[in-house]
Computed example of a mutant assay.
Amino acid sequence: MSTETWVDALSADDLPTDDVTGVIVAGRDIAIYTVGSQVYATDNLCTHGHARLCDGFLDGHEIECPLHQGKFDVRSGQPACDPVTEPLRSYPVKIDGQRVYVRLAALSP
């Protein structure tokens, strides 16, 4: 059984405008994206080349890995083009007041 918890990730003032930023949330490297007025979160490491996605290029709902130009849909973490084939873990996000929260499941031991 997994336990899920909303964890404070960053201030809403620190959200990028139509861009991506990397944050450490409860020891996990997370990428936070804004696309228009929507906020999304995924793991920050590419599943293909282990590059940090916060160093990549956000184009609409797709983040391009800076290492090999593979792309993921930030809404779901699904691969959008080769060479990536394995999806990213994505996380629900909510804004409460001036704080951005990410819902994390407890990692298995």
Rank of each mutant, 00 (worst) to 15 (best):
A51G: 12
V20K: 02
V74K: 12
D8M: 14
V39H: 01
D73F: 14
D8K: 15
A51D: 14
R52Y: 10
I30T: 09
F72E: 03
F57H: 13
L88D: 09
R75H: 10
D59I: 09
V39K: 06
R52M: 05
Q78D: 07
V39A: 04
T47M: 00
I30S: 07
T34V: 04
P83A: 02
L15K: 07
Y40T: 04
S37I: 02
V7Y: 12
L15H: 07
D8T: 14
P16A: 10
F57S: 07
T42E: 10
C81Y: 03
W6H: 06
G49M: 14
L107R: 13
I24G: 12
A105F: 01
V84L: 05
L53Y: 04
S37M: 01
R28S: 10
D59W: 05
D13Q: 11
P83T: 01
S76Q: 09
G36E: 09
G49D: 15
A80Y: 10
D8A: 15
A9Y: 03
V93D: 09
G27A: 05
D82F: 11
G77V: 08
I32A: 01
Q98H: 13
Q78Y: 12
G97M: 08
H61V: 08
G97P: 08
F72G: 00
G27Q: 06
C46H: 00
A105E: 13
D96Y: 14
E64H: 07
G97E: 11
L67S: 12
R89C: 15
V39P: 02
R89L: 14
T3C: 13
D14G: 09
K71I: 00
V93T: 07
Q78P: 05
S11K: 15
A31V: 02
D18K: 02
I95L: 10
I63W: 05
N44M: 05
G77L: 09
D82V: 06
E62K: 04
K94A: 03
Y101S: 10
D43V: 10
A9E: 07
P79R: 02
F57G: 02
I32P: 01
P87F: 04
K94S: 07
Q78C: 06
A80R: 05
V25M: 06
V84T: 13
V74H: 08
S108W: 14
E62P: 02
K71V: 01
I24V: 15
G36M: 05
F72A: 00
G77F: 06
W6M: 03
V93E: 06
R89G: 11
S2V: 13
D59A: 13
C54V: 00
D82M: 11
D55K: 06
E4I: 11
S76M: 12
E62H: 08
E64D: 05
C46D: 00
T17C: 13
L10V: 10
D13Y: 12
A41L: 02
L67I: 05
V39Q: 04
C81T: 07
V84A: 03
D96V: 15
P83R: 00
D18R: 01
A105V: 06
S108F: 14
